[in-house]
Each structure stands twice: as C-alpha cells, then as structure tokens.
Design a protein around this nucleic acid. Structure first.
Length: 283
DNA sequence: ACTAGGGCCTGATTGC
DNA sequence: TGCAATCAGGCCCTAG
C-alpha cells in the first residue's frame, strides 16, 4: 500500500490501538525483512510503552518510553493488521494460525498488531529517538511534502541543472520525501507537465506550481483513506477509496478527464516503471 | 556529481 | 487447465 497517504492512513488506523499501550509480548518470526532486524529487537520492544505514533515520509515511527523509536517501512507489500483481543474470534491470527508472511506480532493488553509483508521489501529498525534525523534511512530524505519545508523555491532549486525526467526527479526521495509512482503520475497530470520533460528545463513558475498540486493530491488521498489496489485493507479493515479518484494512474486507453482535452491516457515506461499520462494536455 | 539499471522477493494476472 | 512471462504501490547499490 505504501506511498505517503497510505502510510499516514495506516498510522491513523494504528494509533488508537498502540498509542499509550504497553507491548506485553513481541513475536519475531524470522531474522530479517529487507535487512536483518536489530539485535535483541524483541527484548528491546517487550515491556516498552508506545508514547506516540509518528510518520516521516513513508516511515512509521513508534516512539517508545525507552528512548528508542521503532522505525517501520512497509516496502511494496507490507501491511499492519490490528486484531482486537476482546472481539470474539479475534485470535484467528494466533500462533499456528498465522500466515507464512506474518513476520512480526506485537501484543498489547487489548490488541494484536501483525506486520505482514509477502515480498519482504519492508524493514524495521530501532534507533534513539533523539537521533532519528541521523538514521541512515532518514538522514537523506528531502522535506515532507505537506510541511513548511516544501515550497516553490525549494523545488526550483532542487530541479536546477537536473537532466533527469521530472517523473524520476519527483520519485527521488532526497528532493521531496513520500511520493511514489501513483501520486507522481497524478500530480504531473494535474500540473499539465509531461513526465518525460527534463526537470532542469521546466520554467520555474511551472515547477513552483507543482507544490500546491502535490499538496492537493496527497491531501485528497489521505482524506479518502489512501488508495486500495487489489484487496489491500487498512489497519482497521476498511478500504481506502482514492483509487476511484485516479485521473491517469492505471487508466491507459481511457479518455483524459481534463475539461476539453479530448486526449487519451497512455502508458509509457520510465526507468523500468509504468508512467501514465495524457500526451495531449501534459506538455 | 549525476544517471540508468540491476537486484531484492512473492503473488496475481496475462498470454500461449 | 497448465505453465511461463510479465507486472506490482520502494529503494539501495553499482557501474559508467
């Protein structure tokens, strides 16, 4: 599920179960995901209370009362599933009933939170909370797209001299952190910018114009509970519905929704990944 | 310094 | 129906 709006949706879904809750039991069912888990991860988590659940870009941050923060990345296929222990039948994910891809199980007094990740591109790490900005995965991230550090001057400066397609530049987490393939396609369509255009050769006012567009797309997606491709469910079991708001993503051959455009959505491949765009109104 | 491409994994879908 | 090829929401690392 995981671009920024999906991760934010997961965070909001987990917060009621985890914020203020003590981890009574931690079951780590394999030694690694994309990278090995930190040493003694279960021991360092067990007994800790989660003070707050935060997010940086696509990373979930569980701030513990031990002074450490659990960093979670969902990769491509990672999910967090909440079971309410008080609900009848809630133990269907108990040991012996866990699926092959349920890698980490967190227990609190009232809930069980299971990290499931078939492709195992996800990751977890523990790091001192007061040093998070220096964590190797977080240190080089660009500004939050919904924060004050993301503005026209920043994007113009970041694009200056870059000879890469604007599609690739917006996927570069060092320039702005949190966009993925879907929301980059959607933002470029709304901004009327061709994804193949070189980032450094777009007029400054058009680059600056991307900022409010990106904010709008992400904000709308978060309000819709993110995008649910296939049957991916959010932490609370409900489905996000922003996929119904896609204007170009996965809509090859459909008419362009821009008023009066009349173009047809096309799919191209850039850096090995699908780009959906309208050749008529994106220039 | 910047950029393109490979690789990591499994599962769902498509095509023969 | 079966099997292989293709594709998927991310991101690190390497080679040029």
């Amino acid at each position: 599920m995981p671009e920024l709006p999906e991760v934010e949706t997961v965070r909001r879904g987990l917060a009621p179960a985890l914020e203020g809750a003590r981890l009574t039991h931690v079951d780590i069912r394999r030694p690694d995901l994309r990278w090995p888990f930190p040493p003694d991860m279960a021991a360092r988590l067990t007994g800790a209370t989660i003070r707050a659940l935060g997010r940086r870009s696509k990373y979930l941050l569980a701030h513990l009362d031990t002074g450490e923060t659990l960093i979670v990345h969902l990769g491509m296929s990672g999910r967090m599933v909440v079971d309410d222990v008080a609900q009848p039948g809630a133990f269907h994910r108990e040991a012996g009933w866990l699926s092959a891809h349920d890698h980490v199980v967190l227990r609190t007094a009232h809930h069980r939170v299971t990290f499931n990740d078939a492709r195992r591109f996800g990751a977890m790490d523990l790091w001192p909370t007061d040093d998070l900005e220096n964590h190797w995965l977080i240190a080089k991230l660009g500004p939050e797209p919904l924060g004050n550090g993301f503005h026209g001057d920043h994007l113009v400066a970041a694009f200056r001299g870059r000879n890469t397609p604007v599609k690739s530049a917006l996927l570069d987490q060092r320039i702005v952190a949190g966009l993925g393939n879907i929301y980059v396609c959607e933002a470029l369509h709304r901004a009327g910018i061709a994804p193949t255009r070189k980032a450094g050769r777009i007029a400054a006012h058009r680059v600056a114009g991307l900022v409010p567009v990106i904010r709008d797309v992400l904000g709308e997606a978060i309000a819709a509970g993110g995008s649910s491709l296939r049957d991916h469910r959010q932490a609370d079991g409900t489905l996000g519905y922003f996929q119904h708001g896609f204007r170009v993503y996965d809509r090859e051959g459909r008419p362009c929704p821009t008023d009066g455009c009349g173009g047809t959505i096309r799919r191209i491949v850039q850096s090995g990944r699908s780009t959906f765009h309208c050749p008529a109104c994106q220039r």
